[in-house]
Design a protein around this nucleic acid. Structure first.
Length: 680
DNA sequence: TGCATGCGTCTTTAGACAGCATGTC
DNA sequence: CTAAAGACGCATGCA
């Protein structure tokens, strides 16, 4: 099937032809056959980079009215905005938290690109444009299963569809175990495919030997340990290295092939990266933590990868760009790495640094990025080879296997269409974990997507929203709103009844919702003024409650300062917490005691003392920030990443504005809040 | 006495969405 | 319920 056979204008056909898009990929053809161009609801569960964006464009271009493209990341929204804006004759708008665009402007667009939270917020604030949509495309729908953000996505989609029954819904998902459940939910046709434009082979490396799933294999020379041992890996190594007591305890290996001096995973990773780069390919290496990403990059900087690729000048230029961002330790480390043709990437980086790394990699000015999972689901950075060094990560239950879906997304970054003959994903393991790794990630299916709507916190938030927007005034009507939800389709809306009742009780107790008796046995649920502001400001009910209490307490303080304002908003579930190390604890405790006259919390009282101390730490950082401290100072003093500082400042702005709005609705004015906000 | 080495213990650990009105160059 | 790597600190050992 060819692009020009599709119901598209000739200028659009030309636009695609200019980019070499003339023929449809098989999954795209399947989507067309399922009716994406004819207004049909379609769920496409296909691998990354198999042309999902084109499917989205087809739906949006052929829809009979304005379209909405929903995606999970602001960076992704910007990326899509640009590709849509390049289409001839299409007016595109973008709406994310960090990008200003008023509702008025959005109403005039053919396509609006937005994050799911922003759409939710627009609905809560009564934006008119959401009712005029003819088509909604949801990217990465499998995020439905995400703990905190999943419920927002499903409630938003359900609300959009409920208010506009003619809305065409197109959902794009990574390969998951139950795409049929998602399709069932949306009454949509399912397009399922594992086709990729570039072949992907996945293998497990033990030592320097990689066995791929297509039967091929690869051997690389691993500089074992750190010492001299340059002779290859050709069997027969007489074991010397010190005391040899290894033979006795292990009975599992009868053969001679298991070596006792297994090279460590980092060396294997370095060898795999060097091998790919020597062949002219770029690499991504995924590791477990931020520090290990930096360490690995610094280790790879010794490999001379920039010289291998012949990109020294461009690498220098990228390094200079990184230096221009700030004078942070992180920035200097990054610049040094970039000069050697490598980089690291994690959420502790400021956005400036991140984009330097991403664009340098796309321009082939960096040979390898060492990354935490940020890069797995983020913007488009395909590489020839992906090395997943760590498959386990510290989590709630100690060391946990990383979900298969996530590892598949990392692996899916391998293979640049038109540039690489094929993509290679290599999972680094050892003799003990080889079988488990292969079973779980090479042969294993990704997890099923499960609704998280039953989570009490999520339910409280969305119950409040349903009441505050006036969509529901009784528990029955609330259940009606949730009826169109993934959870309801999977479990039955009745399963929510008890939980909704609890949520309503909680909200009443919190002063967000009131029961207005209307008849003998009937009452109506209405949002209080505070509840309404809370919902419109898009903060969680618990946050609204804490802020209201904090404002009242602050008003009673004889000397409320900006620190007071920061303490209130930081002691809120909408502010991310800041790690409080043992060494700092005493210092922060002392700080809290010295400043107790400016704090709204009685130090002897809080039940979560540790959590509160963390809030005080965050508040202190923010207060020093508005006091003129530099990023460099704060980063060093409080051991947080430069990017972490930025994101806390950003959240503080948002929460302070919510605090101001709440103060206005309860008639409590705390000048310190406004002062803090304007100084941010 | 000074420095290197080794061993036990302590510390730390991924990511990232959201509001809004008004003024200014 | 299942960790692992690096930093740190102390003791020992050797020149």
């Amino acid at each position: 099937m060819r692009v020009r056979e599709l119901p598209l204008s000739s200028s659009v056909v030309d636009h695609f032809a200019d980019r070499g898009v003339r023929e449809l990929y098989p999954p795209q053809r399947a989507a067309v056959e399922a009716g994406v161009c004819g207004g049909a609801d379609v769920v496409a569960a296909v691998p990354t980079a198999s042309g999902k964006t084109f499917v989205a464009q087809l739906a949006l271009l052929t829809a009979d009215g304005p379209g909405l493209y929903v995606c999970p990341l602001r960076a992704l929204a910007r990326e899509k905005y640009e590709t849509f804006a390049a289409l001839p004759g299409v007016d595109v708008g973008i709406s994310t938290g960090d990008f200003d665009a008023t509702g008025e402007e959005l109403a005039g667009n053919d396509v609006v690109v937005a994050t799911s939270e922003k759409v939710d917020s627009a609905i809560r604030n009564g934006a008119s444009w959401v009712d005029e949509l003819a088509c909604v495309v949801v990217d990465e729908v499998h995020l439905l299963g995400a703990k905190r953000r999943g419920p927002t996505l499903e409630v938003t989609l359900a609300t959009l569809r409920r208010r506009n029954p003619d809305l065409q819904t197109v959902a794009l998902s990574a390969t998951v175990d139950n795409p049929d459940a998602i399709a069932d939910w949306l009454d949509a046709a399912l397009v399922e495919s594992d086709w990729r434009p570039v072949e992907l082979r996945t293998g497990v490396a033990v030592g320097g030997d990689v066995a791929f799933d297509d039967g091929t294999s690869l051997s690389v020379d691993v500089a074992s340990g750190g010492e001299t041992d340059p002779d290859g890996d050709d069997g027969g190594g007489a074991d010397r290295g010190g005391d040899t007591d290894a033979e006795v305890d292990t009975d599992t290996r009868g053969g001679t092939d298991a070596e006792d001096d297994e090279p460590d995973a980092t060396e294997v990773t370095a060898a795999l990266v060097a091998d790919a780069v020597a062949d002219g390919g770029q690499c991504l290496a995924f590791v477990r933590s931020r520090r290990e990403a930096v360490d690995l990059a610094e280790r790879l900087a010794d490999e001379g990868l920039a010289e291998t690729l012949g990109i020294e000048d461009a690498a220098d230029a990228a390094a200079d760009e990184a230096t221009d961002v700030d004078g942070t330790l992180t920035g200097r480390q990054l610049a040094d790495c970039l000069r050697a043709g490598v980089a690291f990437h994690h959420a502790g980086l400021r956005s400036g640094h991140r984009s330097v790394v991403e664009s340098a990699f796309r321009d082939r000015d960096v040979a390898c990025i060492c990354a935490t999972p940020t890069l797995a689901a983020g913007v488009n950075v395909p590489a020839r080879r992906v090395v997943v060094r760590d498959q386990r990560r510290y989590g709630e239950a100690g060391m946990e296997w990383i979900p298969t879906l996530e590892v598949h997304q990392m692996c899916g970054r391998a293979g640049r269409p038109g540039l690489d003959p094929h993509g290679e994903a290599v999972l680094v393991a050892d003799a003990d974990t080889r079988a488990a790794v292969r079973e779980r990630y090479v042969e294993g299916e990704p997890e099923a997507v499960e609704s998280q709507l039953a989570d009490p916190g999520a339910l409280r938030t969305h119950v409040l929203a349903a009441i505050a927007t006036g969509f529901a005034a009784t528990e029955t009507e609330i259940l009606d709103v949730f009826e169109g939800t993934f959870y309801a389709r999977e479990t039955g809306a009745g399963g929510l009844a008890d939980a909704v009742a609890v949520a309503v009780d909680d909200l009443v107790a919190a002063g967000m919702v009131a029961r207005e008796t209307g008849g003998v046995e009937d009452y109506r649920l209405v949002a209080t003024a505070v509840g309404e502001t809370t919902s419109k400001q898009y903060v969680r009910p618990e946050t609204g409650e804490r802020i209201v209490a904090g404002l009242r307490a602050a008003a009673g303080l004889s000397d409320a300062t900006t620190l007071t304002a920061f303490e209130v908003i930081c002691d809120t579930p909408d502010m991310q917490d800041t790690y409080l190390g043992n060494a700092e604890r005493a210092d922060i405790y002392r700080f809290a005691r010295t400043n107790s006259a400016h704090l709204t919390t009685d130090m002897t009282e809080p039940d979560d003392f540790e959590g509160w101390l963390e809030s005080v730490k965050t508040a202190r950082i923010l207060d020093e920030w508005i006091g003129g401290a530099t990023v460099e100072e704060l980063v060093e003093r409080y051991r947080i990443g430069p990017g972490d500082l930025d994101s806390r400042v950003e959240r503080a702005e948002w929460l302070l504005s919510a605090a101001e709005a709440l103060g206005e609705t309860i008639g409590v004015r705390v000048p310190a809040v406004s002062r803090a906000r304007s100084r941010l």
